[in-house]
Simulated scan of single mutants.
Amino acid sequence: MKHLFLTALLAVAMPAWADAVDTLKRFVQEVRSGQAAFTQTVTSPDGAKKRVTQGRFEFARPGRFRFEYDKPFEQLIVADGQKVWLYDPDLHQVTVRAMDQALGATPAALLAGGSLEKDFRLAPAEASDGLQWVEAVPRDKDSQFRTVRVGFRDQALAALEILDNFGQKSVLQFSQVQSNVAVPAERFRFTPPAGADVLEQ
């Protein structure tokens, strides 16, 4: 998850790069809620293995979000502003962590709330795939992620690339993006299903 960039000279020489940083800042400041469909592709460090999942993403600042994976395996991640809940229906298991411990300098914090310059070092990245990119590097040396790149198309959120400390890459491609829409508050509430194992971390 990561952030922002450069000087007037760079703006003249490489305007798209400078614009990408400004776009991320505006996204964080002006987009208070949103929802989108996503496809996530996870690639192993050697590039040999790929896993593709699909689902929906919703958020409302500050600090509330919902990732709902539905294909091929169901999984639900909900942040209610106080805690982050992860529910695995196959295991019938819920993992819950305090918000400040779970979020920090993570890709979810980058999208749903968090402090950009406090948590990340931001820099422009070269445009590719028709997108403007911003690279964010966590300031916390103990972060589980090396870098996060955020891609925008025509000022709209389009993609997120996450490289973890083991060299595994996750790419989320967003579609049907809607910004500043009313997302019902109950979407960010979670009650563990009856009989589920609840693990507090």
Score class of each variant (00 low, 15 high):
Leu6Gly: 14
Thr7Gln: 00
Thr7His: 01
Ala13Phe: 04
Met14Asp: 11
Met14Glu: 08
Ala16His: 09
Trp17Asn: 06
Ala18Ile: 03
Val21Asn: 08
Asp22His: 13
Thr23Ile: 12
Leu24Asn: 02
Leu24Ile: 01
Lys25Val: 13
Lys25Gly: 11
Val28Cys: 03
Gln29Gly: 10
Gln29Ala: 15
Glu30His: 14
Arg32Lys: 14
Arg32Glu: 10
Gly34Val: 04
Gly34Cys: 06
Phe38Met: 07
Thr39Gln: 14
Thr39Ala: 11
Gln40Thr: 09
Ser44Met: 04
Pro45Leu: 06
Pro45Gly: 13
Asp46Glu: 13
Ala48Gln: 14
Thr53Met: 15
Gly55His: 01
Glu58Asn: 05
Ala60Tyr: 06
Arg61Thr: 10
Phe65Ile: 09
Phe65Asn: 06
Arg66His: 13
Glu68Met: 15
Tyr69Gln: 06
Lys71Tyr: 02
Glu74Ile: 02
Glu74Cys: 02
Ile77Lys: 01
Ile77Ala: 05
Asp80Ile: 11
Gly81Ser: 07
Gln82Thr: 15
Lys83Pro: 00
Lys83His: 13
Val84Asn: 00
Trp85Glu: 08
Trp85Arg: 07
Leu86Trp: 05
Asp88His: 00
Asp88Gly: 10
Pro89Leu: 04
Val94Thr: 09
Thr95Pro: 00
Val96Met: 12
Arg97Val: 07
Asp100Tyr: 09
Gln101Lys: 14
Ala102Arg: 06
Ala102Phe: 04
Pro107Gln: 10
Ala108Thr: 10
Ala109Gly: 15
Ala109Lys: 01
Leu110Val: 12
Leu111Thr: 08
Ala112Met: 10
Ser115Glu: 12
Leu116Trp: 01
Asp119Gly: 02
Asp119Ser: 13
Phe120Glu: 05
Ala123Ser: 08
Glu126Ala: 12
Glu126Ile: 11
Ala127Pro: 08
Ser128Arg: 11
Trp133Ala: 06
Ala136Phe: 00
Pro138Ile: 11
Arg139His: 08
Arg139Val: 07
Lys141Met: 11
Ser143His: 03
